[in-house]
Design a binder for these strands. Structure first.
Lengths: 187, 187
DNA sequence: TGTAATCTGTGATGTTTGTCACACAACAAA
DNA sequence: TTTGTTGTGTGACAAACATCACAGATTACA
């Protein structure tokens, strides 16, 4: 598990053994069961999570109680309600397990300690944040340019494994279409 | 103009005069006229831009030649085709003036020099990137939760000045609806 | 100053997608 | 097993939105 995590970081910045030990010491390890919540709406958001194995959904519930999936988080992803995490505000989204999931947890205090203790990590998080921003922009573009069927195809092409791992109802909630429409797409 | 820029940075991290001079030395100043391009599709993307004054649009043209606005960039915003900028790939989007616009330009080489020369700036860019990511997620959420009229209202509430400054055709291209539909919304 | 390009509104019409309703299968928990 | 919950497909209908067409107004610029 440390290996996966170390490799993940070293894809961006090389680390000595001591440096990695320092980095790793800021995290705690947690296992969650399917359907368990890591974050509930209105919670104080303690941690950002690195997904070691499993699958999470970041979900927003609107005024009419409809649920929308902002993001899936699979192996090798970082996830949390970032707005609440960084600003210390209450969670507007929930983070819940679709499968049993193992994560590494990083508190905001430890995040800051980590960044000041090892400047390389600031670059690491900058890189991650940049890629996240770019990925979000791509998702926005797919809303602008594509209809339901096209967005569905793009999603399957990008993350083929999702098709096996999550119910179609959730894929619909991610794509912004009704489950009925999604059901009628596959011809 | 330096003042605006310095204030913008000092909202996040305080700087001494020497530090600001160091930061500023990495930028070049440019003025662009309405309709001029800062980046064209397939260009090599030389710079990221800080908008001192004016208004830009970041635009993507799809296969059927329809134009979609990924983002407006007004005073105090950073903009470029970030994917192309960071990865050194060719631009997939264009960046064009809606009004006469003054910008500060930062090459990727200077960006890296700046970050290594003054570690504070890495934190600055991390903060900016995080907010950008959060903003994109909000935009995704508005696609998931809201219809055309609601998205339009949200946009006007967030950036009332856009209503005065940009033609409705462009607002429609940002909201992902046809200009005709937008025209029929305001009742 | 004149000509072209852009911007905007609006009608008519068709397509896409959502909503409601129902049925049935798969699965989980007691 | 039984019973509830979740997931999926499908028909009928309504709502949202796109497209095409046209017209008048405004703006760019040579």
């Amino acid at each position: 598990m440390q290996d996966i995590f170390r490799e993940h970081i070293e894809k961006v910045i090389p680390l000595t053994d001591e440096e990695f030990a320092f980095v790793f010491s800021h995290f705690s390890y947690q296992r969650y069961k399917k359907r368990q919540y890591l974050i509930r709406e209105d919670d104080h958001v303690e941690h950002a999570y690195f997904v070691v194995s499993g699958l999470l959904k970041l979900e927003y519930t609107d005024l009419s109680a409809k649920r929308h999936i902002v993001s899936f988080a699979m192996e090798d992803w970082w996830e949390t309600d970032f707005m609440a995490y960084f600003n210390g505000t209450k969670a507007t989204m929930s983070l819940q397990c679709i499968e049993d999931t193992d994560v590494l947890c990083l508190s905001l205090a430890d995040y800051h300690k980590l960044c000041s203790g090892l400047k390389k990590m600031e670059r690491f998080f900058l890189k991650k944040s940049n890629s996240g921003h770019i990925a979000s922009q791509q998702r926005i573009l797919s809303f602008l340019t594509s209809n339901a069927k096209e967005r569905y195809d793009q999603l399957l092409q990008q993350y083929p494994s999702l098709f096996q791992r999550v119910p179609k109802t959730l894929l619909a909630a991610y794509l912004g279409i009704s489950r009925e429409t999604l059901s009628r797409l596959s011809y």
